[in-house]
Design a protein around this nucleic acid. Structure first.
Lengths: 209, 209
DNA sequence: GCCATTCCGGAGCGGTGCTCCGTATATTTC
DNA sequence: GAAATATACGGAGCACCGCTCCGGAATGGC
């Protein structure tokens, strides 16, 4: 047998599982039944668990393609509008998209703060794209200089959570508030300084199971 | 038997259940095992379900006392500082408290947008107190006039969610951002208008189970 | 003391996440 | 082509979950 090549049926089943998982997670949320996913993929439950030992592994695989689109969105927006506009447009896209997707807000928060490697890997490109967008907006002078990419993504995730909970109307209002808060004061003065940021990978609060 | 008075053991069991539920929800989150709560309260699972037919009923009962304290916090802050300061202090209290409590952010969002009556009732006083605080802050000129109490509570809930997910440090940074966004521009000009607010009790987005 | 009312407890149902191992299939080797 | 072997599959099984239902125990008025 030639090295590390997986068997044909294994590969087929894996792709099937990811495709079905994306559908089911979008329909029923992040805590959908894994048995159900296996059933709808025409596969035994054991097969699902061999390919994806953890729910997070499956979620990470299901997310990765959608996240690719999200990253491209960040890059595309950059060509058509100012960096600041592109950043806020991206936040809106993220927030609205994540309520349709599969529990992205919770996942991205875990990925940012010591979550499972599978999900973390899926977000790496997105984080880089946002950091780039933010840096340009700050050089442009539209966004205050003391916020970092984690702030932006955390805020976007929180807005996605709001969108999940009570729909897009409140999300749009809060996005407008956050936007004003992230911007520099109109009179050109320095904004009230932000509290110190913890380093990335900081442990989540105690008591989080 | 005299009218509607409950039996002594029923009353005792009910109080026990609420007390234990508060502990367990705080320890293990909103989706803790109800069987476990019943066990730790020295009570059968049937008893729990008779007193609280729904998980939300139990959650609402467990929340109500803590929410009373939260409402008083809003009133007390009003005496010692300006309405604007009191409002933001309250938001911070709510956000930090809710991560220690039992999944308050999710509950308050449900309460605001057509959630279970049990939880909704527990929040009524808090919502009123916040609306009062906000109105004063707006008359004072510290907070922009086009935000409403639902915006404030939604934002505070989102911050509580962030606090649950990644600890108080990021929460403090985002609170500062939101604070600047809620304030009036320093040059006294009118802020960029917010998108229209939906009426209270607006239905949550489709597909929410 | 008795008795009607109220309340309790846990067995039981269908579901879940996750593990484990006998079996079937794909691939290589002859 | 057939045989051999590594690889992957499937589902029974375990412990737990939410929730229902009903026989039996506790309670309080008489």
């Amino acid at each position: 047998m030639s090295g590390t090549q997986p068997r044909a049926d294994a590969r087929r089943n894996r792709e099937n599982l990811v495709r079905v998982a994306r559908e089911v997670f979008a329909e029923s949320g992040t805590d959908a039944s894994l048995r159900d996913i296996a059933r709808r993929a025409g596969v035994g439950i054991g097969t699902l668990y061999r390919h994806f030992p953890t729910r997070e592994d499956l979620l990470g695989a299901a997310l990765s393609t959608g996240l690719g689109a999200l990253r491209e969105e960040a890059h595309r927006g950059l060509g058509e509008q100012s960096p600041g506009e592109a950043l806020f447009a991206w936040m809106e896209t993220f927030a609205s998209r994540s309520s349709v997707w599969c529990g992205v807000p919770g996942s991205v928060m875990e990925a940012l703060h010591g979550g499972r490697p599978a999900v973390q890997a899926a977000f790496t490109d997105v984080i880089e794209a946002v950091a780039d967008l933010l840096a340009r907006a700050q050089r442009e002078g539209t966004v205050r200089g003391d916020v970092d990419a984690e702030d932006v993504i955390t805020a976007a995730s929180a807005l996605g959570w709001v969108s999940e909970k009570c729909g897009p109307a409140y999300t749009a209002r809060l996005l407008a508030v956050v936007r004003d808060g992230l911007g520099v004061p109109r009179d050109g003065s320095a904004p009230r300084p932000l509290p110190a940021a913890p380093g990335l990978g900081a442990p989540p609060p105690a008591g989080t199971p």
